[in-house]
Design a protein around this nucleic acid. Structure first.
Lengths: 135, 135
DNA sequence: CGTCAACCTTACCATGATGGGAGGGTCAAG
DNA sequence: CTTGACCCTCCCATCATGGTAAGGTTGACG
């Protein structure tokens, strides 16, 4: 099938399918006129990529996952290690954002939100407090 | 003072100071030879920008915050509205990531992580389960 | 005054993942 | 032979940040 059909079948945009090829996540065949041709197995690979991306794996991780998926002699330990690393990274980002949310909520809670200029939010930022309030 | 000194005084890199100028967050003066010159007030602005960025405000929001900060007739309601919008965006991203983490933890918990190839994580991704129903 | 280091300038490239568009080739149907 | 829906490659933009290259300025030291 052509790229358009593969895009519909996999839920991955034509643009991204070409990008994944560029970074060697898959290598579709070509017809004589240069058109990419995709097998059902290619579509399966594309769907695998989509699923991994929806779980937040960065593309290099997806590449590793793909290699593991296609390696019948893989160790589940390798998959788990990759996953645990990703979970750790995700938790770190969530923690960062939760810290921001906490500070922001406190500040917003103290702000009257009326027509007057006095604002603890602006004041805190101007005092350079956020980000150094822990220390 | 020159850009290097302003960078040290504000904690913002030279690169980013030039970038913030490019997107019109501040406009330093110039000496006859073309060197940028920064006043203590400019450094204050730079520190304000850094503080807002550390709270996760995207640069366009920082620009708005800066305008509000410099507007003595501002309404604190405007500041609060901006902040609330940012909190909402942050919470949405955290919720997304927490959903990923939840799925990932369940999968990783079911994976033996040994030398055998059987792996619920790979299986789930290959089944296109995560993130959406099967298709 | 010459030289060298440490500044400064602009301009371009790269990131990660994605989308948009231009300009041009191909194919199937009418 | 035309039309429209495909396909191709290449370039540009995002967002915030860092890097590098090539060149100008300054200040200190000899």
């Amino acid at each position: 099938m052509n790229i358009g059909e593969a895009a519909k079948a996999s839920g991955i945009s034509r643009k991204m399918i070409r990008y994944y090829e560029e970074i060697a996540l898959l290598e579709p065949g070509r017809t004589a006129n240069g058109y990419r041709v995709y097998t059902p197995q290619d579509v399966h690979t594309l769907r695998f990529i989509g699923a991994a991306r929806r779980l937040g794996f960065p593309v290099p991780d997806v590449k590793a996952l793909l290699a593991l998926w296609q390696d019948r002699s893989r160790s589940s330990a390798d998959v788990k290690r990759l996953t645990d690393g990703h979970i750790t990274a995700l938790r770190a980002r969530v923690a960062e954002m939760n810290a921001m949310i906490g500070t922001l909520e406190t500040l917003a809670g103290a702000c009257d939100g009326d027509e007057r200029p006095d604002c603890p939010i602006i004041n805190a930022i101007a005092a350079h407090e956020p980000g150094s309030q822990r220390g």
